[in-house]
Amino acid sequence: MKVVLQKDVLNLGDAGDVKEVADGYARNFLIPRRLAVRANDGNTKMALHQKKLAGLKREKRVKVMKDLAAQIDGKTYEVTVKVGENQKLFGSVTGNDVVNAIRKTGVEIDKRKLEIADTIKNLGEYKVKVRLAEGVVPQILVKVVAEA
């Protein structure tokens, strides 16, 4: 059965794609969950239109994220933490701490966009990737310093 995908479906396709799937898969899974509709002339035209609009939205979003990436790429952000004896941190530096440091400069970023390689449990400098959009991944430097 030919279906037009309404939403992105893992291992099948993106919204707006016209796919040939097994009848049972379409009737029992895709259509009841509103992930797809049967392909006919009207639905196919509508899907192509939706795909075009989604592409335009994606391009606009990437442009905005590239502007944001230019603001933060390569910059150093300082996170102040409490330390105990032997300069050991109480806990660790989280994505929330890094976002708060970035927020102080007037830039808003979602903490889920941060890609921290290892847990930050010591003082020092750490490279953190910020995955803003597809293909837009600036890198920032997080400097962890002890509270005075």
Rank of each mutant, 00 (worst) to 15 (best):
M1Y: 10
M1W: 08
V3P: 06
Q6W: 00
D8C: 01
D8F: 04
V9A: 07
L10K: 10
L12E: 11
L12T: 09
G16H: 06
K19V: 05
E20M: 12
A22K: 15
G24I: 04
Y25A: 04
A26D: 08
N28V: 08
P32M: 01
P32Y: 00
P32Q: 00
R38T: 15
G42C: 02
T44G: 04
T44H: 05
A47W: 15
K52L: 13
R58G: 00
K63N: 14
K63I: 12
L68S: 09
A70G: 10
Q71T: 10
G74H: 07
T76H: 13
T76N: 12
T76P: 08
V83Y: 05
V83I: 11
Q87E: 13
K88A: 05
F90C: 01
G91S: 03
S92R: 11
S92W: 13
S92A: 13
V93C: 00
N100K: 13
N100G: 08
N100Y: 13
G106F: 05
I109P: 04
I109S: 01
D110N: 15
R112E: 13
K113Y: 07
T119Q: 14
I120M: 04
N122H: 11
E125M: 12
V128W: 06
R131N: 15
V136H: 15
K143E: 08
